[in-house]
């Protein structure tokens, strides 16, 4: 699967060999995507894996659940309608080609 991150420094990073089943946070962290820190290890409690999902992908990715929304609310100054936490997005074949922008750190 192909996934593209627009990093906090503006530079795009495309990963060609992403595997279904892993999360967007793990993918970004493993590939050293700038701004994907994943401090809590995917526990949905730190908001250091915050991304903006490209509008055309929003339906496929889906909205955050209640717990994720609560964590996103702690960085409301950088929150947008297409905000998601990367650790809560599990890659599936339908997300092949996904493009996200890494959010600045609140």
């Amino acid at each position: 699967m192909k996934i593209t991150f627009v990093q906090v420094n503006g530079v795009e990073k495309t990963i060609e060999d992403a595997r279904p089943g892993e999360t967007l946070m793990i993918l970004g962290r493993t590939h050293g995507v700038e701004g994907i820190l994943g401090d809590c290890g995917g526990g949905c409690s730190c908001a250091t894996c915050h991304v903006y999902v490209d509008p055309e992908w929003q339906t496929a990715v889906g909205p955050p659940d209640e717990i994720e929304s609560a964590t996103l609310d702690t960085v409301s100054n950088v929150l947008r309608a297409n905000s998601r936490l990367g650790c809560q997005i599990v890659l599936r074949p339908e997300l092949d080609g996904l493009r996200v922008t890494v959010a600045p750190s609140g």
Binding site: L37, A47, V75, S76, N77, V78, G106
Partner: peptide
């Protein structure tokens, strides 16, 4: 707006 960036639980 940046409440979640406090360091009471540390960072990193």
């Amino acid at each position: 707006g940046n409440l979640g960036t406090h360091v009471a639980f540390g960072v990193g």
